[in-house]
Design a protein around this nucleic acid. Structure first.
Lengths: 163, 163
DNA sequence: GCAAGAGGGTTGCCAATCCGAACCCAGTCA
DNA sequence: TGACTGGGTTCGGATTGGCAACCCTCTTGC
């Protein structure tokens, strides 16, 4: 069956998300979209990705409603791709990925590109906060509830022992 | 060159992170690790992933310091894999992925598995908060600074227009 | 009017990787 | 002794990503 990871058997929101953005390059396409990139050639230049793969990714992201094509030239027909609200909602994913990479992959010596929180002026160390009560959420503060009786294969839970 | 996405040319923390956890199945392995899974057979049962691929993923995650092998039986030698501190730091990534999938993929009708914030009792709608000042961070509150003079290919920036 | 160029892809071929399944090996239970 | 379990490794085949060439429609230069 090739390399298709078939996340679909995993009835889990994480697997579902990965089915949309889990392909190689896809998240980098979205990262660039956040960065203002909106045209085929720009992505091609930035990423160096194969053109057919880029075309397939853009098409897939449009189908999934993450990007929206927008005709910016009638003749010749040219369209650019902009983030939908759904796509913009991926911001948290990108921020957490960025922070993890900055902290753990690049390491302390060479921190790459820092995200600075303008409001307080410090390097952003992102935490998960509850939008309802505003508190910072630690792993153990989360309980999972099964909304449906869908067979659950696996879900996120706090680590067994305290960090 | 095959399907290797070669994120390495992207000098970006997101690309760097994807190089560690961007493979198919890898994030699901980590998700299960958070869920308490620690042994080969458990992952195999949960994910239905090919055994060779699972073995490769575990090895790679150990090499990257996300998982740590721990011998739980001398004879025969058997080891389990537990999350390191570095691995546990991926919690924010999983939470944001989960929330996005719950909201945008499963949709309103069938919300899958909900994360409930025990402290306030509501379904968790995660936001990014600044660990320094505690405020909730919106995309436009972030400024990127180039820590080094590494050639930057692309980075996250707020969307051009306001949401 | 015609050639060259740019934007946005599509098509074909090849190699890397994933998948499935079989196999292996050490110990253990019956 | 023989079957079973956990934890993998090996092998062959199927997909997919990468690369490069090609295409098609304007637009611009001369």
């Amino acid at each position: 069956m090739g390399r298709t990871a078939d996340y679909s058997r995993q009835s889990c929101s994480i697997a579902a998300t990965l089915e949309v953005i889990g392909d190689p390059w896809t998240l980098l396409v979205i990262r660039d979209a956040f960065n203002g990139v909106s045209r085929f050639e720009q992505w091609q230049d930035n990423l160096g990705v194969a053109r057919n793969v880029l075309a397939a990714r853009l098409k897939s992201l449009v189908q999934h409603g993450v990007l929206e094509p927008r005709l910016y030239s009638e003749r010749p027909p040219r369209n650019e791709y902009v983030l939908t609200a759904k796509g913009k909602d991926l911001y948290g994913v990108l921020v957490t990925l960025h922070a993890w990479g900055n902290k753990h992959v690049y390491g302390e010596t060479d921190s790459g590109i820092d995200m600075v929180h303008k409001t307080c002026g410090h390097t952003l160390n992102p935490r998960i906060a509850c939008n309802c009560c505003g508190e910072i959420v630690k792993p153990r503060d989360i309980r999972l509830t099964r909304a449906e009786n869908r067979p659950t294969v696996g879900e996120v839970l706090p680590p067994r022992e305290a960090a």
